[in-house]
Design a protein around this nucleic acid. Structure first.
Lengths: 227, 227
DNA sequence: TTTATCTTTGACCGTTTGGTTAAACCATTT
DNA sequence: AAATGGTTTAACCAAACGGTCAAAGATAAA
């Protein structure tokens, strides 16, 4: 009888847990999401612990209970964002068969990622400015570990030898690719107002068309001239 | 005799003024330069009025005597920076004879400008994030007034008709040109650590080589294929 | 029911922040 | 030499900030 009751209690507890994991996120995650929202929008200096607490619907003291300081909370958010973004972007090296389709894959995944998370570039850039050394090292280890750059570098040199693309320093090519993908997002307010009379939808449409435009721009820039 | 003395006094006063304008800048300018230095490096939220005062070697109250609030001081700096940067960049439209040399002119002046003022992009981007509407309007009026975009747009379409370049939407081309020039500067800490093992000099050299690399990258990307 | 542990809160603290004020300073004018 | 008006300062202020604390609530075990 007691055993039976015990099982029942455990079952009820399990049901309750499943309910919770659907509706009531654990506090730690609520805080995390709220903090990400505020930090990404306002940067470290502009964000207020009070605002994060309100966004999470909790007391300010509870923030410090889970993440002791503002700096630690920010660091956790920053690492989470990087951990989410970087693998997605590096995947292109292992992706398709031909070199040009790899480039297409890269541009498309990058731009689509930023269409869903348009504030991430500004978030990373402003933190880069606030604290260049720490972050650069952190990023570096994440990327170097994957060895994506070395792989891509080899790919490029192979294509140059094959004669499919003109000679270009791998660093230049990848910096160009990244610049073309990212920059229109943090610079959105300028381009949107100058080119599209501040029409939000038109700029959104413009960003979508860039997926194909930038791809062919890059390929045209590097492909070898026909003899 | 009195007249003679008067002249002498005025002459001495003039000498004194010339001396001053060489060595002792007027306080207002000292403040301005100090504020620019601090704001550009730390952004609006990160900058402290106390720090600006110390940088200028004056009392904090004197800041408020000349520029009543932090917001007003920042705005003055921001307008000055924009007023310095934008005309230099727009000059390319009126510059050389051929279309391709215009592009070369644009890239070279832009990159050289940023080599001298590498923190300006981050400064503008972070302010863009903090206050998109105001600034975008301000930028817009500065550029629209000059009508540079319309002129460049016409130039592009002419070249397309002539068949010297492949069809491309002017907005895409100019966004690409700007992205390629600017982005490596605010993203410096990443690229420098990932590609150059944090070697400052090597990255500086890399940025210099971009002047030619980016120019030919763009031209290759848009020039029409030979039949 | 009691006990022990984890979670949550309101009230509070010391510091820093942007901004003010009244008085001192200083060069001209009268 | 006295008055004037712009400049500079030390001292000060209220508000906002990140962070702490003791106590109340909740939860599950003994």
């Amino acid at each position: 009888m007691t055993v039976w009751l015990n099982h029942l209690i455990k079952l009820l507890s399990l049901i309750n847990y499943l309910k919770m994991s659907e509706q009531e996120k654990p506090t730690e995650e609520i805080i995390f999401d709220a903090a990400q929202k505020v930090f990404v929008l306002k940067g470290f200096d502009g964000a207020r612990m009070q605002e994060i607490a309100e966004e999470a619907g909790i007391n300010k003291a509870l923030l410090h209970y889970y993440y002791r300081t503002k700096e630690k909370l920010f660091r956790a958010i920053f690492e989470r964002v990087l951990g989410y973004v970087i693998p997605k972007v590096l995947a292109f090296v292992e992706s398709d068969e031909t070199f040009f389709s790899k480039i297409e894959f890269f541009v498309h995944t990058y731009v689509e990622l930023l269409l869903k998370n348009p504030y991430i570039p500004n978030f990373i850039l402003s933190e880069l400015n606030r604290n260049p050394n720490n972050i650069a090292d952190m990023l570096g280890s994440l990327i170097v570990k994957n060895d994506a750059f070395a792989k891509f570098s080899k790919l490029i040199n192979t294509e140059i030898e094959k004669g499919t693309i003109r000679p270009i320093q791998p660093e230049h090519l990848i910096v160009n690719m990244i610049s073309l993908c990212i920059f229109p997002f943090p610079a959105r307010p300028i381009f949107q107002s100058v080119f599209f009379k501040n029409d939000k939808d038109k700029y959104q449409e413009f960003l979508k068309t860039r997926k194909n435009e930038v791809t062919s721009f890059i390929i045209n820039a590097i492909k070898a001239e026909k003899l």
